[in-house]
């Protein structure tokens, strides 16, 4: 069988035109999509989960009977920001032992509580702020945890008695 070789250039031309039209349509329909690098969100998500898990561990009481204070509640009520710093840092640094993670997370913790219809806040604890952290850092992630405490928090001027306060921790990588 003898193949017919005629008109091959026209075939190529046709295919090229088709591809150009496809690329044009693809570009037009994709231009509505704003692209941001996926990596940033993935590490943000990991830091967020790490923070929530650390707070949950600290807010787990030793005794499971109702209304039993957790270590975190005792820290907030006694205003032991230094203890919080040590323990929270320790949880953020945890690794499996087979890998060494980059230890560069910093945090700043604030306590919010309610006074009437107004939320009040005071600075509770923060990590050692290295100089590099003041110059440049990645965006901070916010994690929160409700903490039940038996009395008013350290700062004066607030309601006494049982209450829920909101602990908000900003975590970032320097």
């Amino acid at each position: 069988m003898v193949m017919n070789d005629e008109g091959q250039l026209y075939t190529i031309e046709g295919i090229t035109a088709g591809v150009i039209m496809l690329v044009t349509a693809f570009t037009i329909f994709n231009s509505g999509l704003v692209y941001t690098p996926g990596d940033a969100h993935i590490s943000d998500m990991q830091i967020q989960q790490l923070g929530y898990d650390a707070l949950q561990m600290m807010d787990t009481p030793a005794d499971s009977s109702p209304l039993y204070e957790s270590p975190l509640a005792k820290m907030i009520q006694g205003n032991h920001g230094d203890q919080f710093k040590i323990e929270f840092n320790d949880y953020l640094k945890k690794h499996t032992g087979t890998t060494e993670i980059v230890d560069s997370l910093e945090f700043n913790a604030t306590v919010f509580n309610r006074d009437g219809d107004t939320p009040h806040s005071y600075q509770f604890s923060n990590s050692t702020m290295y100089e590099t952290s003041q110059l440049t850092r990645e965006p901070a992630i916010s994690v929160t945890r409700y903490v039940w405490i038996t009395g008013r928090p350290f700062a004066s001027g607030y309601d006494t008695g049982n209450q829920l306060v909101l602990l908000e921790v900003l975590i970032w990588r320097r």
């Binding site: 939320p119 039940w148 829920l164």
Partner: peptide, 18 residues
């Protein structure tokens, strides 16, 4: 009293921070 305290704490702090 306790219940109302917790409910209002939760409502206001969720609204203002979360």
């Amino acid at each position: 009293t306790l219940q109302n305290r917790f409910r209002e704490d939760m409502a206001l702090l969720s609204m203002s921070r979360n």
